[in-house]
């Protein structure tokens, strides 16, 4: 939605959140969506098969047409899978602790591309079976070399109990889903400033997710934040959006804003507490190692 232009020194100062409540950049902690020209080209490359299918129609070869259309659909589907696979990999890489995607999409995309090429060269181009097969294999191999395979292993589970890490990954997935629903609901409010407040709440929450991922021991103390509070925020946002889009109720807006501010502060505080604990862990670690060095007479300046 459009936002009226105006800064601190404009004649009509916008009545946005004051500096005290303003939080950091809402894009913090969010990665840019990667756009890969290669994937787009893969959507385009099979298009001649459509024309070939029309040619078969003209020649009266129903079977050939069906085969060519199947090859076309297979290749397009492979490109879709590849795109989703790349997205899933980006999500995987953005996190400190992550489970491997359930479906190895890039691998399936490579196989389907091979099958599509095989179908197109055998039924469309009328090559022999063996050359078609070899083309298919080469296409699959080139696909794997070019785009790689999916992350197959869990990440960031070293050093911590695997069971704990799994629990963290699950809890963060759920919390992330709640957050997305909240953001979707906030779009319906139709007030750019409130929407911005919800976004900054979201980035505070995401900061906390990352902190929990880095140290799964914090999960117990943050569970309330990840589920109860976020669910409450989502429900409140949905109800407020329903009400506010109809009535523009100023009281409700004030209450809602107060709620958002409270939530954001408590998320930030929780994160800070967790980081402080990490800090004391670090201090202990450093202390122990330095003592050891000192004992062995290796410490500089001694």
């Amino acid at each position: 939605m459009a936002q009226r232009y105006g800064g601190d020194h404009s004649p009509k100062k916008p009545t946005g959140p004051s500096d005290a409540t303003k939080t950091a950049n809402k894009f913090r902690g969010r990665t840019a969506h990667q756009s890969d020209i290669r994937v787009k080209l893969l959507f385009l490359a099979p298009v001649p098969l459509l024309f070939a299918a029309i040619g078969e129609l003209r020649a009266g070869d129903a079977f050939g047409m069906a085969a060519e259309l199947t090859a076309f659909i297979t290749l397009i589907f492979a490109a879709y899978l590849l795109r989703d696979g790349i997205k899933a990999q980006a999500a995987f890489e953005a996190r400190a602790i992550a489970r491997a995607p359930k479906i190895p999409r890039k691998l399936f995309a490579a196989e389907l591309t091979g099958v599509g090429v095989m179908l197109a060269s055998f039924f469309g181009w009328h090559l022999d079976l063996i050359p078609s097969f070899i083309f298919g294999i080469i296409a699959s191999a080139a696909h794997i070399v070019s785009f790689g395979l999916d992350p197959m292993r869990k990440k960031g589970m070293g050093g911590v109990n695997e069971f704990d890490a799994e629990r963290v990954a699950k809890a963060v997935d759920k919390a992330e889903a709640l957050l997305r629903e909240t953001l979707t609901a906030a779009k319906r409010i139709g007030n750019r400033q409130l929407e911005g407040r919800v976004e900054s709440l979201a980035s505070a929450a995401r900061d906390m997710f990352r902190a929990v991922e880095e140290d799964p021991r914090d999960l117990t103390s943050s569970r309330k934040f990840l589920s109860v509070y976020l669910r409450g925020a989502r429900d409140a946002t949905i109800k407020f959006a329903d009400l506010y889009s109809k009535t523009r109720d100023a009281d409700a807006q004030r209450d809602y804003e107060a709620l958002l501010a409270d939530l954001e502060t408590s998320f930030a505080n929780q994160r800070e507490t967790m980081l402080l604990e990490n800090r004391s862990d670090l201090d202990v670690e450093i202390e122990v190692l330095r003592d050891r060095l000192k004992q062995e007479g290796l410490r500089a300046g001694d």
Binding site: R38, L41, L49, G55, T113, G124, W125, V145, S146
Partner: peptide
């Protein structure tokens, strides 16, 4: 992540195979 030259080469091989087999299907038997 940046695309390496090897990945680009493999990609062009893939693209050429797909495009040729698709155009081959238009042209019909060799």
């Amino acid at each position: 992540m940046r695309t390496t030259p090897l990945q680009w080469t493999a990609f062009f091989v893939l693209l050429v195979i797909i495009v040729f087999s698709a155009f081959g299907a238009i042209a019909g038997p060799v």
